[in-house]
């Protein structure tokens, strides 16, 4: 009941979904549409787990008075404010949108923009041509960087007597050729892995998604 039924459900839904993909018959198309609907209905409930886990984590932080526990109240405050304005009327609420535009968006955008500083610092400290492989990586990165920057073509066209727009052309060649080959190799390898893992899941060989316990 606790493990066998989920394994059977996984097998049934997996097999049905796989078979209907191959068959253009109206009955199988209908079945496929129905399974997709089930997925769409069940899926949103999964988001509950995320919220429960986050709230639980911060409740524990407050209870145990871990370092900076006071800030957990801010998490609850932010959450309650958004829900209070958004839930009754829906996401087209003016205050809800204002909070998103002027608080959430700037903070998230700025948080990720910090990476520009860290990537520059890391490039200076750690990007070393120690080996042939590292040198290739470094050279490719520099060519793509300069090829991406409009100033690369401008400087080349001004200073070099040979060819036009060579930096952006070289960048494009790298992306179109060696990059494409290596990425395709990765795609093929990963896809074979996805397929074998999917088969293992459907046939109940891979069961880690059931978690621990009986």
């Amino acid at each position: 009941m606790r493990r066998q039924v989920p394994l059977i459900l996984c097998f049934l839904f997996g097999i049905v979904m796989m078979l209907v993909e191959f068959s253009p018959h109206p009955i199988s198309e209908g079945l496929r549409a129905e399974v997709i609907k089930w997925d769409l209905i069940i899926g949103p409930f999964a988001l509950v787990i995320g919220v429960i886990t986050l709230v639980h984590t911060h409740v524990i932080r407050v209870k145990r008075r871990v370092e900076h526990w006071q800030y957990s109240y801010l998490v609850f405050f932010g959450m309650i404010v958004m829900v209070a304005f958004g839930l009754p009327t829906g996401p087209k609420n003016e205050v809800f949108e204002w909070l998103f535009d002027n608080v959430q968006v700037p903070m998230e955008a700025t948080m990720f923009s910090l990476l520009a500083f860290f990537i520059a610092s890391a490039s200076y400290r750690a990007f070393r041509a120690r080996t042939l492989e590292a040198t290739l990586l470094l050279v490719a990165a520099l060519i793509v960087m300069i090829g991406n920057a409009p100033i690369g073509d401008v400087l080349w066209n001004e200073l070099s007597p040979v060819g036009d727009n060579i930096p952006s052309t070289a960048r494009q060649w790298i992306l179109d050729n060696p990059n494409l080959s290596s990425r395709r190799g990765i795609i093929l390898g990963v896809s074979l892995g996805v397929i074998s893992q999917s088969i293992r899941i459907i046939f109940g060989i891979e069961r880690s998604y059931l978690g621990g316990g009986d």
């Binding site: 899926g43 949103p44 409930f45 988001l47 995320g50 919220v51 986050l54 800030y71 957990s72 801010l74 998490v75 609850f76 405050f77 932010g78 959450m79 309650i80 404010v81 958004m82 829900v83 958004g86 839930l87 829906g90 996401p91 809800f96 909070l99 998103f100 608080v103 959430q104 903070m107 998230e108 948080m111």
Partner: peptide
């Protein structure tokens, strides 16, 4: 940082309910 986490979760809850559930 903490306010951002709270707002993001609140935003997610509203959308999950209104445009999902």
């Amino acid at each position: 940082e903490h306010l951002f986490v709270g707002l993001s979760v609140g935003y997610g809850i509203v959308f999950s309910i209104h445009q999902g559930l």
